[in-house]
Computed example of a mutant assay.
Amino acid sequence: MNATLKTIGVLVVFFIAAPLLIVVPMSLSSAPSLQFPPPGYWLGYYAQYFSDPSWLRPTLNSVLIATANTVLTMLLVVPATFALVRHKFWGKSLANVMMMMPMAVPHIVMAIGYYSYFGQLGIVFSKLGVVLAHTCLSVPITFLVLSANLKGFDRSLERAARSLGATPAQTFLHVTLPILRPGLLISALFAFIQSFDETVVAIFISGRDAETLPRKMFDSIRQDADPVIAVISTLLFVVVLGALLAPHVLHIARRLARRAVPILENRS
């Protein structure tokens, strides 16, 4: 059974990673457009990406918008999750449904609604409009992750802290927050990815000054299939891979450091 599960896992990983076998070589291609297999290899498109403001500006916009979206989403979702999970009040079921509604509505429908409503407010084609729209889209998945962590939280730990004289704020900072930290970090990560990767709403409400990287990539592949798209995909993969490997590298480095300390002490 274990061997079967491992085989299935390897096949799933290969299926997910298979496009990289095409994307990475195309990022190094010397062809004027996306072409596989590449006729030749060079690093010109990497240099073009890092020197072209038309690509760097959307990248910076996406990072700023995703960061602002993450902060705003967490400020809204954290208190809402505590209220919906730990308290009973009239309209709780309706509030739960409303929190999940953006996940059930197609993004194209929401994009049209945002375009009309934000147009009346005068914030369409602005970073603020994109941040607000992305926040609405990020709330459901963030709420699901955080509520799952909060439902499994042992409240007897908080009661013990309160019985020992801790204030509600001290209990939250020193008991609740450390235990929920992994769930909070994962929720924030999902909010960031949701915003950074979103395309449909950005196409409708992001103007020239608020153009995001996914919208730039969509416009580019629709017009001329610029190989810089493959460069960006490869760089994003490297960033994600680095983030996944960083904890393991740090763990190995700490183990090596702990082993080195006694050796150095003996030598001294």
Rank of each mutant, 00 (worst) to 15 (best):
L213S: 11
D224N: 15
T212P: 12
S233K: 06
S233V: 07
S220E: 02
L244K: 05
T212Q: 14
Q223S: 13
F237G: 12
F218I: 00
D224V: 12
I229W: 05
V239I: 15
L241M: 15
V238G: 14
L213Q: 10
L235N: 11
F237I: 11
P227D: 08
L241G: 15
R215S: 05
L213K: 09
R215M: 10
A243H: 02
L241R: 08
S233T: 07
F218K: 01
T212K: 12
R215C: 01
L213I: 12
D219M: 04
R222M: 00
V238N: 13
Q223W: 05
L236G: 06
R222D: 00
D226R: 04
D219G: 04
P214N: 08
G242H: 11
V231S: 06
Q223Y: 08
V238T: 14
M217H: 04
A243G: 13
L244T: 09
L213D: 06
S233H: 08
L241C: 15
P227T: 03
V240R: 00
S220H: 02
D224Y: 09
S220D: 01
T212Y: 10
S233F: 05
K216R: 15
L213A: 10
A230L: 09
V231W: 03
L236C: 11
M217E: 04
Q223A: 10
G242Y: 11
V239E: 09
G242P: 12
F237K: 12
F237Y: 14
V231T: 07
S220I: 00
V238P: 03
T212R: 12
D224T: 13
L213P: 07
L235D: 11
D226P: 02
F237V: 14
I232N: 05
F237P: 04
D226S: 08
S233E: 07
I232F: 05
V240H: 01
L241Y: 12
V231Y: 05
I229N: 07
R222E: 00
V228N: 01
R222L: 00
S233P: 04
R222S: 04
A230G: 11
D219P: 00
M217K: 05
R215N: 08
G242I: 10
A243Q: 08
F218E: 01
L241F: 15
A225R: 14
L236H: 03
T212F: 10
R215I: 04
T234H: 13
L235T: 14
D219F: 05
S220V: 01
